[in-house]
């Protein structure tokens, strides 16, 4: 890459390629997107300490055109962020988009989908999680009664061990049979 300012070292870029589903060009594109969110925060040089240390605040990330309409944008940030507040450094951001990319296999996507829909982070999708998902997805257009019915139905459909919540395994069984998941859980950069 013939950039004048060296954003990444060659080694770094190679390693990113090995760790994600992107090629060099796409990685640079992702960086451009990342930097455009807050040019004043992000230096052009993105070698080792910067790529980890500089964190983009969550409220900036959700402004990303790809995420701005997404009702789960905050959850996406939180799922990929290590600090637990949804602020992402570049590597996390890259990882996030890599997961949503086309080449990412379904099983990996399901893993992160589970993380996203698990609002309270207890490794189970409980009824309250489902209700939260439903609320976010439908922008509160359904009545409480309907929420109740829908969550009941979902638990009924997916719950295998009858503990009243969906574990990752159960979640995976449900989503694996869905024809749409792989098409919808996808962000094109």
């Amino acid at each position: 890459m013939g950039n004048k300012v060296v954003t990444f070292t060659h080694e770094q870029l190679d390693n990113y390629q090995d760790c994600t589903f992107f090629n060099k060009k796409e990685i640079l594109k992702v960086f451009k997107k990342f930097r455009n969110l807050a040019p004043e925060l992000i230096p052009l040089e993105m070698t080792t300490p910067e790529s980890v240390k500089i964190r983009m605040p969550k409220d900036r990330i959700v402004k990303l055109p790809e995420l701005i309409e997404n009702p789960f944008a905050e959850r996406v940030c939180e799922s990929f962020s290590k600090d637990g507040y949804g602020n992402l450094n570049f590597e996390e951001f890259l990882d996030c988009l890599s997961i949503f990319s086309e080449n990412c296999p379904r099983d990996l996507k399901i893993y992160y989908a589970f993380k996203i829909y698990d609002y309270d982070g207890d490794d189970f999708i409980s009824e309250s999680d489902l209700r939260q998902v439903l609320k976010d997805l439908t922008k509160n257009e359904l009545t409480n009664d309907e929420h109740q019915k829908i969550t009941e139905k979902i638990i009924e459909e997916g719950d295998i061990d009858n503990d009243g919540k969906l574990s990752f395994l159960e979640f995976e069984t449900v989503l694996k049979r869905s024809p749409d998941f792989i098409n919808t859980f996808h962000i094109r950069i």
Partner: peptide, 26 residues
């Protein structure tokens, strides 16, 4: 088979970035 679960978990198309499409989708 899993009408509701699929509707909930795959209902949102993450590709949507246009506000009108988004409201339509919702």
């Amino acid at each position: 088979e899993c009408v509701f679960s699929w509707k909930l978990f795959t209902g949102w198309d993450y590709m949507i970035g246009h506000s009108e499409t988004a409201s339509n989708r919702i």
